[in-house]
Write a protein that binds this DNA or RNA. Sequence first.
DNA 1: CACTCGACAAATACGTTGTACACGCGGAGT
DNA 2: ACTCCGCGTGTACAACGTATTTGTCGAGTG
Lengths: 247, 247
Amino acid sequence: MPTQQAPTGDDHDQPQPSLWERLDRPAPAPRSTLTPQRIAEAAVAIADTEGLDAVTMRRLATALGVAPMAAYRYVSGKDELIELMVDSVYGGLPLDAPAADWRTTMHALAVHLRAMSLAHPWIARAATPFSLSPHQLAVPERAFAALAGHGLDADTTMAIFRTVAIYVHGSSATDIALQDLRRSRGWSDGDETRVGLAPRMSYLMGTGRYPAYQQYLRQATRKDDPDWHFETGLDCVLDGIATHFGI
Amino acid sequence: MPTQQAPTGDDHDQPQPSLWERLDRPAPAPRSTLTPQRIAEAAVAIADTEGLDAVTMRRLATALGVAPMAAYRYVSGKDELIELMVDSVYGGLPLDAPAADWRTTMHALAVHLRAMSLAHPWIARAATPFSLSPHQLAVPERAFAALAGHGLDADTTMAIFRTVAIYVHGSSATDIALQDLRRSRGWSDGDETRVGLAPRMSYLMGTGRYPAYQQYLRQATRKDDPDWHFETGLDCVLDGIATHFGI
DNA sequence: CACTCGACAAATACGTTGTACACGCGGAGT
DNA sequence: ACTCCGCGTGTACAACGTATTTGTCGAGTG
């Protein structure tokens, strides 16, 4: 029913709603000042607790206590909203003073980036490692500074940073994908996940087309240790940089 | 939550026969015009030419010449549709016979995976490198076979594959993100992109907060050569594996 | 101090999406 | 020949992003 509760229906009878009528109307609209920061923080909070898909212009608006379209004064659309969210999170990245050697600095950078991704599991899906936002740019800036002074040319420096950044980004994204699968299926620990995946697995292994993979499943002992995998891969990447460029 | 539709009572054996299991059971009947293969191919065709967002259940249905809901007989929802699309593309991956040494095999695998990602630019966004679909599983299977015989334990073997796969995936995803940005803004070559990005860039550089990055921009000469970056990073990763594990 | 006006938020509306549900048809098994 | 089951159709709905219109606050001006 297209009902309309607007009290201004027949105003020739009563020029304006009476004082009492006005009095218990919901709220005089506290005129909360909206800022990009507040918008970003609210959106990040929603994404952190309910996932990126829960970040809806309407949901964001109710979280901010404003009307659905209010945020459009500050962002041109949802894409910009997400850019804003990503930059906001990168703003919280700890960029400690560069260590003596490049490797320590790059390792620390990688660890911090990973921690950031895991704390905001939506960010890997929302961001490319190389967007041109102020706080994201601070990451290559730090890396370039750490790599300077080894006689590397600009392209090589970028290639090194790119390789590390991509590895960290992809590694976190992989961990998070599994985490999301778990959450969406309601599995808590690794064993429950294995049980949940068992039908699919036993079908696939039953085909006999994956003997090497099957052997891996039987012998592996660190399948549930993403940190070990992360560190091992990162060491590989850093070792590779060191030997490939002799630094 | 007691959520189980079970429209027909023959599934008390197994709750869900898992897409893939259903897939290679004998062709149900020639009388139906719709098959998972046809659905997957049509969806992939749409995604290839118009992007992943253009893959809509309705759009897919019209491409197949059927009613909007028809595909739901074969996939339980859009998620399964995308799984099907990804597996279909992986099915076209050339897995040539393993070479003598692991490095050649892994390098070839990486190159083929990259070619596949660039040919279907939506796939990096749609897939994790480690989904459990039949054709995707063939990739680690091949890698494990290539790495066998070096005395590596199962966890290490997986770590190596994981590192390479993540690098390839992330590298392609990065290239594609830039490509998408170009296409969405209508920029054709690298120069046009630079012109389009100039305002943003000059603002950011004007803040003076990124001296090292600014220097990179001045000195770099291979900014538009993603293949060079890919190969350089891949060589790093493979070198790292070789030295880290002494193989 | 009254008034105007521009900036901002509210309200409403539209087109599109994924998908639940009930229906009709047509060939295979009895 | 009749039945039944699997397959495609049609209709419907809630939720989404966002364009457009409408109201209202508060600073600037005389």
